[in-house]
Structures are given as C-alpha cells and as structure tokens.
Amino acid sequence: MSRLRHTAVFAWVLAIVIGISACSGSTSAVDAHGSEARHIAGLWWLMFGLAVGVYVVVGGFIIVAALRGRRGTPRRSRISQNMFITVGGVLVPALILLVLAVVTVTTTGALRKAGNNPVRIEVTGERWWWTVRYPDRQIVTANELHIPVGQPVAIGLESDNVVHSFWVPELAGKVDTIPGQRNVLRFTAEKAGTYLGVCAEFCGIQHAHMGFRVIAQSAGAFERWTTAHAEPPREPTSELAADGALRFQRLPCAGCHTVRGSQAHGTVGPDLTDFGSRATIGAGAVENDPSNLARWVRHAQSIKPGALMPNLTLSDDDVRALVSYLESLR
C-alpha cells in the first residue's frame, strides 16, 4: 500500500514534467509571457509546493494510520486524538490558509491595475467569433488582436448576445463578456509571439470553435501594422479578384459582411477588410488557405456546423473569384 503514496508523488512529478515540456505548445498557462500570467504562474508554483507537501504528509498519515493496527490490535501512540485534530486539522491548515490568503490579496492587488497610457482595444464576443476594434485608430477586424510588447493594453470586453469568456492562457486569466456590462482586462505582453486564445464560457453549439490569436509584436512592428490597417484595402490587382469583388456585392455576402472602402456594410458576420492577412477561417476552425476558403464560402456548415453563416449555392466561378478576392484583402 505504500506504493500508493509513491504513485501519487510520481503523478505530481509527471505533472511538472508534462507541464514544462508543454512549453513548446502554445496554450499553456504555466508557460507565461504576459504580466498577469507570470504572476499567476508564480503563485501556482508556490501552491504546488504546498500541495505536494500537504499531500505527502497527510497521505502518509492516512497510510500509516491504516496499516499500524493491521495485526488486529491497536498500538499505543504518543499522539493523542485531540492532538491530531487540533494540530493537523486546525492549526497547520489555518497557517497555510493564512499564507494563501495573504498571497491572494497581494497578487490580486498587483493585477489588472490601470496602466500608463494603455493601448485600447474593444473586443466583443459574438456567436462564435470575436469582433476586435481599435477605437483610437479606426481599425476593425475579427479573431485577431495585435498588441505591442512591453506596453500595457486595456481590453474592453462586451457582448450583445450570450456570455463568453476571453482567455489567452499564456498572457492572462479569464474575463467574461457579459451582456449589459463592460469588463476590462489589463496586462502587458512580455515577449513577442503569437498566442492562442479561446472562449472559455459555454456559449452554444460552436463554443468549441471560438478561438482567436493575439499577436504580440515590437512597438515598431505594431505601429506599422496599425498604420497599414487603418487604410482600406488596396483595389484588387488581378482580374479574377476584381471579378470576385463584384460578385461579393451581388451575392448575399455583402449583406452580412463589411469590407471597408467597398459597398459591403453588413454586420452579421466578421469584418473582412483584412481577411487575407488572417491565419484562420471561422475563429480558428480551419487554417486560412484557398482550398479551405473555397469550402467555407460554399459550405460553411460542413466546417463549423451550426455557425451563423449559411451554406450558399454558388457556382464554381463564384467560388474561384470570391476566394481570389478575399485572399487579396489585406
């Protein structure tokens, strides 16, 4: 039975190993690259240490207590029953909990504070994708946030439909988007890179495919990105893309989607102004490449069943032209 305790310890060690080796992945909460996530990861390692300690000691007591008298006679002990309860059940836990309470308050106080001159971003949870707006810079996009490294960001979170939750494990903890309420998440990215985010609150049929990306870049790169994206996309250069632009207006697309600088002002679906530069289609459902896109514009439902973009009857020509047009939008 003492093997049991070893198993438990082993399991925890395994947890660390897997946790660390997973740093090469990109949604690990303990592989922190944002101010908030780093604080929390620190907190986690402290609690982890305490937890291993408590588990090993208390687990040890359980096993020894169970095995001591297995011959059938109770053995005398210097530890009285009351000693067990008062020391093990009250005093020691109270001490540990006191430490945790202090850490809770200090860490909470250190997080989500209003920073100096933050980059303001407004994010709205939609079913099942995200609208991203930069109110200071006339940029509207979807499912991708660009942020500068080393500068605080303040992300305003809202929803006009159901509750979602905004979560980028490597950068910060979660904040819900709640209808009728505006929440703000504040943190600073500490390392350039692309971080995956997900919707963490169950929000309906495609809750599983409501991902997004946060692209943290150097201040210079971020400025270049914002200036480029404040402009409407360039006119399509190829003939096929220009044809696609026409078809986009003629077909139902424009009724739901916006492309700045064109006649398309729909607001049901994501803004497509810079669609060609985005990494995924359908809020992380599939990679953004021409063949996936061709499938998406025709049969969005086969990629993301239940999504609010219907399957459309399009000719092969429609599809080819639309794909070319959409990929040209940057």
Binding site: I62, A65, G72, T73, P74, G88, G89
Partner: peptide, 29 residues
C-alpha cells in the same frame, strides 16, 4: 475567496478525526 479558504478548516478537522480513529484503532481491510 477568503471564506472559501476558511471552509478547508472544518474539512481538515473531519479529516484528522478519521486519521486519528484509524491511528488509535486496528483497521480491518
């Protein structure tokens, strides 16, 4: 959060009462 932490104490009490019972007894498996 603080009250949630505190609720671990009564659980701890029960826990060690069970341990103490076994410790001073002779367990049949």
């Amino acid at each position: 959060a603080a009250v949630s932490l505190l609720i671990a104490v009564p659980s701890g009490v029960q826990f060690f009462a069970w341990i103490a019972t076994m410790w001073h007894g002779a367990v049949r498996f």
